[in-house]
């Protein structure tokens, strides 16, 4: 089987890669925030995204709410869920060895998926809202992907402004630099942890809402995003928040290019090999992160 790869095809996958990458970046930024601030690897990040997707699905199904408008519901809702999780469970493992925090989050993850199975059944759901593509010269872009990318970029940009400009954002960055120093400066670290976990969950929820119109919704849909988010924060540099954007776009590109040149099925493997290489050669990420 020989496929001729034309420049148009390459252009198409690069654009598709960037479209997908913006979404990855947003979701991974949440994971990166939690890791940066608390040194906890949140493997339940994907299941939180899944809850966001279900929120959108039910609002669409029952109330006929525009999926993009449901961002206004899913994000605050999951923010709250994140705060509760942090308050009840996660704060107990913030300083524990990674075995404890990882296992705890696995426990949460398994429980969330099972709860979703009990509550929503394992049936595959979908939100039929936006189909078709924009055509631009030789390229075609699915409308839902373009819109998802636009929202993701806007939300990510908003998060960066928040981190860079506001008092709260500065406090979050201060805590992720050094908790002790932040404490001395009068920052309430516990509160920052709560807000961080909430905000990270809201970012996951936004991801869930945006993918809800593109992919099949089912309780186990989230795990793959956990793994992808790990890849993104490693590529971008753990604890380096702008790095998440670069990492996300890069992952999107790698996936698309490897499906063009090798095959779609192995793009996870390609991404993984890259992950190990980056970890070994640039343990602080492609941009300079914090060791």
């Amino acid at each position: 089987m020989t496929v001729v790869i034309t420049p148009t095809m390459i252009g198409q996958v690069i654009i598709s890669g960037l479209l997908a990458g913006a979404l990855y970046a947003m979701v991974a930024l949440g994971l990166g925030l939690i890791f940066g601030v608390m040194r906890v690897l949140n493997v339940a990040h994907g299941p939180l995204l899944m809850l966001g997707a279900y929120t959108t699905f039910w609002l669409f199904q029952l109330l006929g709410l525009n999926p993009y408008l449901s961002l206004l519901v899913s994000m605050p809702l999951l923010f709250l869920a994140g705060v509760v999780l942090q308050r009840v469970l996660v704060h107990r493992v913030v300083d524990a060895p990674e075995l404890s925090s990882l296992l705890l989050m696995f426990g949460v993850s398994i429980a969330l998926v099972n709860l979703a199975q009990l509550g929503f059944t394992s049936d595959v759901r979908s939100v039929e809202y936006l189909t078709g593509s924009f055509i631009l010269g030789p390229f075609a872009f699915s409308k839902s992907r373009v819109i998802a990318c636009a929202f993701a970029l806007a939300i990510t940009a908003g998060a960066f402004v928040l981190l860079k400009k506001t008092r709260l954002g500065k406090a979050i960055r201060a805590v992720s630099q050094s908790r002790e120093v932040a404490q001395v400066c009068g920052i309430n670290v516990q509160r920052i942890h709560l807000i961080t976990f909430g905000a990270a969950s809201a970012l996951a929820a936004a991801g869930g809402t945006l993918v809800a119109v593109m992919v099949a919704i089912q309780p186990e849909m989230g795990q793959v995003y956990t793994f992808k988010s790990f890849l993104v924060i490693v590529l971008g540099g753990a604890g380096n928040y702008p790095g998440a954007l670069l990492g996300g776009l890069l992952l999107g590109l790698i996936e698309q290019l490897s499906s063009l040149f090798i095959t779609t099925q192995v793009n996870e493997a390609v991404a993984y090999v890259l992950l190990v290489l980056v970890l070994l050669l640039r343990p602080t990420g492609l941009l300079k992160g914090r060791s």
């Binding site: 890791f35 040194r39 690897l41 493997v43 990674e98 990882l102 793994f227 790990f230 890849l231 490693v234 095959t263 099925q265 192995v266 996870e268 493997a269 993984y272 090999v273 992950l275 190990v276 970890l279 070994l280 343990p283």
Partner: peptide
């Protein structure tokens, strides 16, 4: 050989990924 040089959470991530990748390869 490569991964045992990674520390703490990074070793955990690498090992977490290994499993995913093997499954993908076997399916392929």
């Amino acid at each position: 050989w490569p991964c045992l040089r990674l520390k703490g959470p990074y070793f955990a991530i690498a090992m977490l990924g290994l499993n995913e990748v093997l499954r993908v390869i076997v399916s392929y």
